[in-house]
Design a protein around this nucleic acid. Sequence first.
DNA 1: CGGGCATGGTTGAGAGTTCAACCAGTACAC
DNA 2: GTGTACTGGTTGAACTCTCAACCATGCCCG
Lengths: 159, 159
Amino acid sequence: MSETRWLTACEQEVWRAFITAADGLTDQLARQLQRDSGMPYTYYEILVALSEAPERTLRMSELAGARGSSRSRLSHAVARLEEVGWVRRRTCPTDKRGSFAVLTDKGYSALEAAAPGHVTEVREKLFDVLTPQQVEQLGEISRAILRGLGAPTPHCPVE
Amino acid sequence: MSETRWLTACEQEVWRAFITAADGLTDQLARQLQRDSGMPYTYYEILVALSEAPERTLRMSELAGARGSSRSRLSHAVARLEEVGWVRRRTCPTDKRGSFAVLTDKGYSALEAAAPGHVTEVREKLFDVLTPQQVEQLGEISRAILRGLGAPTPHCPVE
DNA sequence: CGGGCATGGTTGAGAGTTCAACCAGTACAC
DNA sequence: GTGTACTGGTTGAACTCTCAACCATGCCCG
């Protein structure tokens, strides 16, 4: 156990700015979604993941792994989403332990309704305040952090 | 109501990388704190804020405002911190509505015990994976975001 | 085949956050 | 002073998340 490598004054300043900004930003986005569309941010992410999947269907575990969500959290969340009719569960025929989550039409509509407001918020609060160069830098920095977290995905699900 | 300005593929990639990284990082930090020190991240922040205040004392509202916490949240949190003996409430003599939160010695010790592990995590997961130049860039970017959020504080509480 | 063991997913309790409603206590005007 | 509005803070219910315990099914080896 070696000595603690404390932060320099400069580092501390950057750290606080970063954590405050990141936190404030996600908070703002979550609040906007909840207010305008009545869904928490994590649920929005689930709907997005499903909407991009073939057949709008994913295994529970894939859905959980897609973003760092625990199985438990996902299970609760999907239960809730099923209640409001945005998602349906379907058991896997080949492996009777498994479950699929399927995005319903109603869920797709809800997502379509929520997306513009969300995207607008992201644009205004993030991209509009950064220069193109900074956007690029932020991409690099984010990927570096992800590597450091052992996140195996500098994924580019966009094409 | 104008049309939605959607994200380009490139922006979308940056956005996902950023949100995943920021989220993963805070998640990791919160987890480390909870595991090693038995306190949620927000409570840690409260203790830090109090420890830096004169007399280790702050008005509830100042404490809430210091980071973007709601009055309600803070009230619940301080109630919990009082239970474990890390903070004490004291009523304000000049304004009988007001309350002070005071960090106890026990609370200060808990903070001292928690800090090294937390700082180590921040260093390893953030500063160790970035170049000095990237750290500087991240500072700029964070401040830009904060300005965009209307956060009045590009504050430098370090000195 | 039968006994471990890993895997996919669910469940329930406990904890933190949010939202709206709610007290005081203060300030300000009439 | 009394009425009104505002401010500082608390409370309770609803909701999400976490953690650990738990089924059920699949897998593999003797």
